[in-house]
Computed example of a mutant assay.
Amino acid sequence: MDTFALIVTIGVALGFTYTNGFHDSANAIATSVSTRALTPRAALAMAAVMNLAGAFLGSGVAKTVSEGLISTPEGSKGMGILFAALVGAVVWNLVTWYFGLPSSSSHALFGGMVGAALAGGTTVYWSGVIEKIVVPMFLSPVIGLVLGYLVMVVIMWLFRKSNPHKAKRGFRIAQTVSAAGMALGHGLQDAQKTMGIVVMALVIADVQSAGDAIPVWVKIACALTLSLGTYAGGWRIMRTLGRRIIELDPPQGFAAETTAASVMYTASFMFHAPISTTHVITSAIMGVGSTKGTRAVRWGVAKNIVMGWFITMPAGAAVAALSYWCVHLVFA
């Protein structure tokens, strides 16, 4: 039974990674596609490859996820908590994908972990949740907004005397690089989050000890699944990011992607903080768009997106808690 529960939990974790891929593929490529710097299929293929590469660049985020957020007891109870947490995240991913709302897969997962832990009567390390999840959740979009505005101002000043048509062609080419950097950062962040969950499952099942290195097969499985999900695409969300917030041109797309990628690399390598790629790229687009004036940004759409950010963790927690109670009733 324990082996079966482990296999099922790992399977659901990879299923979450797949939904994360097609849900968040828009993060990396929406700006490049909307500015016609890349065709949709070429952008998706590039994003899938760079996601795969990014997953192998480090393990700091995975360690943050697997340690210091919740206490997972050994045996079936601990595995049930992880299973329920993943179900909560997957359900919320599918709901927000259906409505084209670029919410955070990461925070759906973290909300699921907290909700399942509370339902299972195990310890939630609130100081860790606040320090590692909540603070970066609020801080990273603010940084993305301000930095996106500043980067765009610098670009406008540097190219103020350039021929607009030539400049746009140049930035269209440059966007292939910035989009690749964004996709690499997405792999660095989001594949590691699932790696952390799988490691927790292995520790609960007593297959490996806490603190051991992440097995190579876990890295490969999570990276490949994320890449497959990315290649499947997330067209509904892509439309929201690429067109509905602001009509992007190549310089703006380059500025937004460069800003978001920089924030993700800094969070991953310097602080090992699991931030949301969705939050960062969306806020960067808003900041870039603000350089055209406040009316250039469709703040009504932006407001709906931000509301989605606030309800993601509670929603993931609620679904996870319900899932845990259902699993407990069936297998108790």
Rank of each mutant, 00 (worst) to 15 (best):
A256R: 00
G196I: 00
G185Q: 01
G287P: 00
V203A: 07
R239Q: 14
A179Y: 06
S262T: 12
K168E: 12
P274H: 01
F171W: 05
I245A: 06
R236Q: 11
A232G: 08
K292G: 15
I173K: 15
A180W: 03
R239M: 11
A213L: 13
V263I: 15
Q208A: 11
M238K: 14
A210K: 13
H279K: 11
D206V: 08
R172Y: 06
G211L: 09
V198K: 02
S178H: 04
G289F: 03
A179C: 11
F254N: 07
M200C: 06
I220Y: 12
G229S: 09
P274M: 01
G229C: 10
G181V: 06
T240P: 01
G234C: 07
M264C: 08
Y231T: 03
W235N: 14
R243I: 07
R169N: 14
K292Y: 09
L226F: 09
W217R: 10
K193F: 03
H272Y: 10
D249K: 11
L248I: 12
S178L: 02
T225A: 06
G185S: 11
K292W: 11
T266S: 14
I197R: 01
I173W: 13
I173Y: 13
L188D: 08
P250V: 04
L224P: 04
C222K: 02
A261F: 02
V218L: 05
Q208H: 12
L228T: 05
K166L: 15
A180S: 13
V203T: 07
L226V: 03
A183N: 09
I275K: 02
L224K: 12
T194S: 07
R244F: 11
R244P: 08
M200H: 07
A256M: 05
I237P: 07
I275R: 03
L202E: 02
A273H: 03
P215M: 05
G170S: 09
A260P: 00
G253M: 04
A191V: 09
A223F: 08
